[in-house]
Design a protein around this nucleic acid. Sequence first.
DNA 1: AATAAAATCACACTTTCGGGTGAATGCTTT
DNA 2: AAAGCATTCACCCGAAAGTGTGATTTTATT
Lengths: 141, 141
Amino acid sequence: MKRTILLYALSLAALIFILKLIEYRFFVRDLSLEFYVGLVAILFTVLGIWAGNKLSRKKTVVITNPEFQFDAARLQSLNISKREYEVLDLMSKGNSNQEIADKLFVSLNTVKTHSSNLFLKLNVRRRTQAVQKAKELQLIP
Amino acid sequence: MKRTILLYALSLAALIFILKLIEYRFFVRDLSLEFYVGLVAILFTVLGIWAGNKLSRKKTVVITNPEFQFDAARLQSLNISKREYEVLDLMSKGNSNQEIADKLFVSLNTVKTHSSNLFLKLNVRRRTQAVQKAKELQLIP
DNA sequence: AATAAAATCACACTTTCGGGTGAATGCTTT
DNA sequence: AAAGCATTCACCCGAAAGTGTGATTTTATT
């Protein structure tokens, strides 16, 4: 964290130095102000992406802790429906399809349909893989 | 992904518009070039951080659980053999019996025997339950 | 009201899993 | 050497899981 901030500061200093050089050329060679500003924008966008990645990678480690942080956004982005999620949840608790069907008051075939669609959305082929992936994606505890 | 790029483009356009306004004021109020450049730098750093985060967020895959403390004593007390544990480990990673057999260079029947004994020792009836219970017992991450 | 999405179920079919039994081999431990 | 354990494998059988297709109903959204 500290090192990232330090590196950011150093990069900032280096960039400002480079910009001063460019500024010099700008006045000497009479380039347009738009070109100059565009260059600054590009450089700092790149720097921002880099710094952002460095800083948010630390956050990833925080997410790694055992405290489950439900990722509703990811659930939505995968287009997993409410019913499919319920099946996933019961699945992760070690229930068979028949047990899931009994608990959700639906037929076995319905559970199969839901789980099949779930596997497609999670891009897996078996329930064990689905559970694994769902945990990685912070969809279930 | 597409939406992020679109939003980035829109933000870019908005920023350029704002910059033009600032540029206008710059000439009118005669602010220093350094101030102007600094502002551009800050704005695009922020934009870069945001865009970078959006684009790289899908990389937050969590596999390691730092809380995991391997409980060798429990493994022994359950009389789980080395080979059975290897099967359990591969099982927890979503492998089918056939895949486990291939990875351990044994036959499918052997894996079935191991997993069957494993289920007895863990007092479960399905691989999903076995994985669940093994995690609870701190046998696997 | 029309359309789209979600949820429901069926049926046929293939694959995978799990139980039960039996058996051969090798490695320790007594 | 004998007993015990782990490891290996085979065969059979039934249960569970998963695939594919098609169809109906319910619920949201426009």
